[in-house]
């Protein structure tokens, strides 16, 4: 298949879009791991026993939820700053 210059540019744009979306997916998974680690640390700091399912079912209290939200918003903002320095 041959493509002209404008088609090449369009295809490149489409591929960058796909790459960006893949990056966001991986970032989401990374965030999920960071959140899990924060929950695990909280349970350990409180001296609770780690039982099967205790991290899964842990509901962050207001303070932890607020801290996670702030950290997450900064995390996303930094990704977007790289993708779109003009935002």
């Amino acid at each position: 298949m041959t493509v002209d210059a404008s088609d090449r540019e369009r295809l490149l744009d489409a591929r960058i879009d796909k790459l960006t979306q893949a990056l966001m997916y991986v970032a989401g998974e990374l965030w999920t791991a960071r959140d899990r680690q924060a929950v695990l640390e909280r349970i350990l700091i409180e001296g609770q026993t780690i039982a099967p399912g205790s991290v899964d079912s842990h509901r962050p209290d207001a303070a932890l939820a607020e801290a996670l939200t702030a950290e997450r918003e900064t995390f996303v903002a930094r990704i977007l700053d790289y993708l779109a320095p003009d935002n």
Partner: peptide, 27 residues
């Protein structure tokens, strides 16, 4: 909904990404 940690945090990420999209639209 009593989401587990993974579901809750993935959904939280969607919320933050949506807010980021709002900022991009503003720009």
């Amino acid at each position: 909904a009593p989401l587990l940690q993974s579901g809750r945090s993935r959904l939280d990420f969607m919320v933050s990404a949506s807010r980021g999209l709002g900022r991009l639209h503003g720009a």
